[in-house]
Design a protein around this nucleic acid. Structure first.
Lengths: 234, 234
DNA sequence: AGACCACATAATGTTAACAATATTTGTTCA
DNA sequence: TGAACAAATATTGTTAACATTATGTGGTCT
């Protein structure tokens, strides 16, 4: 199944740059690229057969999305959100994603509902085959599709960015592979939505996001990541 | 009175670039630069005594904020949000800014409340002296300070961006200088907040933003803007 | 061993020149 | 007059070379 990319808009980037940006976002989302990883321009040029100018534009764009940090004179790194940022990102997601369920900007069409079911199916499939990367990807896609269906394009763009930041946060602070256990949450959520039980759905979403937040352990420090080539090509 | 700039974070830009970016944001916020205005690199280089490389980075950053559009091969222009985007931006603001009042991420400290009062005072002052630019600026600042005080840094960043987009939207679609008439809204809002009457405050905020939306006239077309030098230096 | 310093290496930051492309201007002709 | 074309101009896109700045290495001294 093919669904439009995780991210929604690529303002200011030419198509070739979008591809690079999306590859990096994918690698970050699926945790092949961990927080703090160096992103040397020259290596990225090689990997993507691009030019330094283009790579630099992409890195700036990703810095503006808060998933990359540019340290002047030192280079670009995958971001390592601190505890405060982690809490803020989760709280913001709660505000928006619960808000969208409580007071939708638009009614959920049958078509979008079908997409949601399909996404959930993919998520279950990934879970069954223990494919962690695909699990994360489709889990995020579920949240994004909800924002698309009940919210609007602007909200979807915001949520898309927050999902990526969440992925980094979980990569740093997750307690003990708790992520996988939350699988049932999306099932219940979709059931409530199908039943038009919006208050119940909102409650589930709130609990779902709070649970993620509560499963974070802010006492841990850093974790090493893969090498660039392995992360982006392997 | 001095309050930190409208925008919150300048990830990936060096200070000199931030200054240019903020100048352009200011010009757009205060409607000295209108939707559709051309932004030729060479002129910006002259005006800000900067280099093309820097200007280009700034333009990309602003494109990512949806207040500038880069047309490949043609250059950068101040964005002209269409009707759909206008409705989405206002709906998103409603969702977030009402949400922040209904379920604050943090209690409003006395210090922040004082700032809000001060901002409102400036707003009234600007209104009394018929200083349109300052009116817009402080009006936006009021919304931003609310997001800072009741939300968090992430929410404030989002709201900050949405305020700028709203300024462009109003510049295009405002019916008949209705903006100035909404002055009393912020007064009432602050009164409700001071009385801890959150549901009432939320209702007022919702009405306030809906009113802005309803005062838009989507039948109008474009309006000309000032010259670059006049807008940015005058 | 460990702190310190100088050098070598590698990475990023910057610039200027050139190439490619739009836009404007000017001319011709119907 | 105004439509159509062509040349001139102006603007953006791209690259490569260079300057600047970090990083790593090796050696010396205490």
């Amino acid at each position: 199944m093919v669904i439009e990319g995780e991210n929604v808009q690529e303002e200011g980037l030419v198509p070739e740059e979008s591809v690079v940006a999306q590859s990096l976002r994918d690698a970050i989302l699926e945790r092949r690229l961990g927080p703090g990883s160096r992103l040397p321009e020259e290596q990225l040029v090689e990997i993507f057969s691009s030019s330094r100018g283009r790579i630099r534009r992409v890195l700036l764009a990703l810095a503006r999305e808060h998933i990359v940090v540019i340290q002047p004179g030192r280079g670009a790194f995958v971001a390592s959100p601190d505890q405060e940022e982690a809490k803020d990102v989760l709280a913001t997601r709660r505000m928006i994603e619960v808000g969208v369920l409580e007071r939708p900007c638009q009614p959920l069409t049958e078509e979008r509902l079908a997409t949601l079911r399909q996404v959930l199916k993919e998520e279950r499939q990934a879970h069954k085959t223990h494919d962690a990367a695909r699990m994360i990807r489709w889990s995020g896609q579920f949240h994004l599709e909800l924002a698309r269906g009940l919210g609007n394009a602007v909200i979807a763009g915001i949520v898309s960015e927050l999902i990526l930041r969440t992925s980094l946060i979980i990569a740093i602070y997750e307690r003990n592979n708790t992520t996988c256990c939350l699988k049932a949450d999306h099932d219940l959520l979709l059931k409530s939505i199908e039943a038009h039980a919006w208050p119940e759905a909102a409650r589930l979403m709130s609990r779902h996001l709070l649970e993620i937040e509560h499963n974070l352990d802010f006492s841990v420090s850093v974790k090493p990541g893969l090498s660039l080539k392995l992360a982006l090509l392997g």
